[in-house]
Amino acid sequence: MPGETFKEYVDSFSYGSRTDLFFKWLKGAAEADAEDYIQSLLQELGEVSDTGDLSKFFEMTYEAQLAANSPPGEDPRWKYEDAPFTPLSKPLSEMRVGLITSSGHYVEGEPHAPPELSDYTQEEGTKHIGEYGRAKPFLSAVPIDLPQEKLGVHQPGYDIRAAQKDRNTVMPIDRMKEMADQGVIGEFASMAYSFIGLTSQMRLTREDAPQWAERVKDEGWEAAVLVPV
């Protein structure tokens, strides 16, 4: 756009005029790093055109994402001194293990978001992320025998395309079932859970997370695999 600075251009990929959640991390990158990344990206696309080899693209994108998410200093809000830890009480092969992800998966036909956000599509959600950040955490129960095509994904906090193609990229239901079949775990809890990770962190830590901890204990979970997106 006329008069637009480079900084404004890269920032626009993060919930701006060019929203693209695959590249939203560019907003957190140092300007020089963003410049280097885009130039390298174009160079690499030239190479890929001849070789079809995407490994360099993956490597440079991973390194750039790592740098953009590693700003100097720490977020003091969520820095803790204690480290709660529960050791296993028996072999994993004798335990019921559950799965929770922040992927925003939900069962098609059931609510995909809290009531005040339920009218938003994924795309519309990206225009209202502040509302998600204030919303009460929204947890969906997903029966582990539900087929992939019955699952939807709503989570404006990340690029959901991989999760839509294959739930196991963020919610490894099928791999967990295999672990149970092979006896690595005693049992895979029949209900997995997914929530919208873009939510009020204060409400999550003070209210919902402790409630969910009690809920899964009531369902007999003895250990949990957690997958954030």
Binding site: L66, P172, T199, A213, L226, P228
Partner: peptide, 23 residues
């Protein structure tokens, strides 16, 4: 967000493991 879940679960007596992108 999942860090909060992990801490709540561990505190309640349920062991957890997180699978997370290193970024």
């Amino acid at each position: 967000s999942v860090g909060h879940i992990s801490r709540a679960f561990e505190t309640a007596g349920t062991p957890t493991v997180i699978i997370q992108s290193n970024v």
